[in-house]
């Protein structure tokens, strides 16, 4: 089966500063792909580029984004707007602020239905109620006429998902959908996403910094660091035999229930800002296995014995 979405050597720049450099991955229909990385690694920028919603000043410097065999990165704004919300939808991190406070939840769901599916007011309202039921909002008939501030955080995120699902998109981009929610609500939302994906055969691109979420729901993982793909592979392989020292460090930084209590290993330093990315491997300054050759040239992705692909020339030594 051909890929639903292909990102090929995507570079995004603000002025002369490249925030994404040669990012490539693809998503098959119905697949759940996780993009993980620290703040500033370029996860959200990748998603925004896919939606054609780069912030002002940002542009695609090179590379292509192909969605359903159409090159999204070349589409004019008018065509993009037709696609957004209909074929490809996005949910955001902040359910508190992602709904319009002066419109009822129902009006906001109905807006998508009327805009993309040309429904009249009455049938859009009815469809909004059934969408809220679909995302398991209790008392949907009552909630549909309520304003966002009357809903809890989890319910707002469900309402956001209902808006995103309104046109049965082929791809749902979820940018940290559970970060702002507490743990039990988070589990509920992930269950919901899992169920919806099976029901509609919808692919999900899940952006998160939470490896627990990735392990819970994703089939494949892309690990990003400083605007580049550090490692990619099946979720199982990434967790069992991570090849890239960065992935290893991320996994080591997860608190564990068993074993002795000690200091949690942390990765020294922070992600460099795009203006002063180091030459060569961008993780080298923070990497315990770095050698001078690491700083000479940008490493390319290569297949490792563990089943993943990593952009590291020292992967065999780091294992």
């Amino acid at each position: 089966m051909s890929a639903l979405l292909r990102v090929e050597a995507l570079s995004v720049a603000f002025g002369k500063t490249e925030v994404l450099d040669g990012v490539s991955f693809d998503i098959a229909p119905g697949e759940v792909l996780g993009i993980v990385g620290e703040s500033g690694s370029g996860k959200s920028m990748t998603a925004l580029a896919m939606m054609g919603l780069l912030p002002p000043g940002g542009r695609i410097a090179s590379g292509r984004i192909v969605f359903e065999d159409v090159e999204v990165s070349r589409l004019p704004e008018r065509e993009l707007a037709k696609m957004r919300g209909a074929r490809m939808a996005m949910i955001f991190q902040e359910p508190m602020a992602s709904l319009n406070p002066v419109l009822t939840v129902g009006e906001q769901i109905a807006e998508v239905l009327r805009h993309h599916r040309g429904m009249d007011r009455r049938s859009a309202h009815n469809e909004a109620v059934s969408l809220l039921k679909l995302v398991e909002v209790a008392a949907a008939e009552r909630r549909v006429d309520e304003y966002p501030h009357q809903l809890s955080g989890g319910m707002r995120q469900r309402a956001m998902i209902a808006i995103a699902l309104a046109c049965r998109p082929r791809l749902l981009v979820a940018d940290e959908p559970t970060t702002a929610l507490d743990a039990t609500v988070q589990a509920g939302i992930l269950d919901l996403l899992r169920g919806l994906r099976q029901e509609f055969g919808m692919a999900v691109l899940l952006i998160t910094h939470d490896l627990g979420v990735v392990a819970d729901i994703c089939e494949r993982v892309v690990v990003m660091y400083a605007g580049r793909v550090a490692e990619t592979g099946d979720a199982g392989a990434i967790f069992a035999e991570p090849g890239h020292p960065y992935t290893q460090a991320l996994l080591a930084a997860i608190p564990r229930l068993e074993g002795p209590i000690g200091t949690l290993p942390a990765i020294a330093g922070v992600v460099p800002s795009p203006a002063d990315f180091p030459p060569g491997c961008r993780f080298a300054p923070r990497c315990p296995h770095a050698i001078p050759a690491c700083e000479a040239a940008a490493p390319v992705l290569r297949a490792l014995a563990g089943g993943t692909q990593a952009a590291c020339i020292r992967a065999e030594h780091a294992a």
């Binding site: 707007a81 939808a89 996005m90 602020a97 992602s98 998508v112 808006i163």
Partner: peptide, 13 residues
């Protein structure tokens, strides 16, 4: 506000 980006993400002109 994020809901403005949200509106654009659902295809509003």
């Amino acid at each position: 506000f994020p809901f403005v980006e949200g509106a654009r993400a659902i295809g509003a002109s």
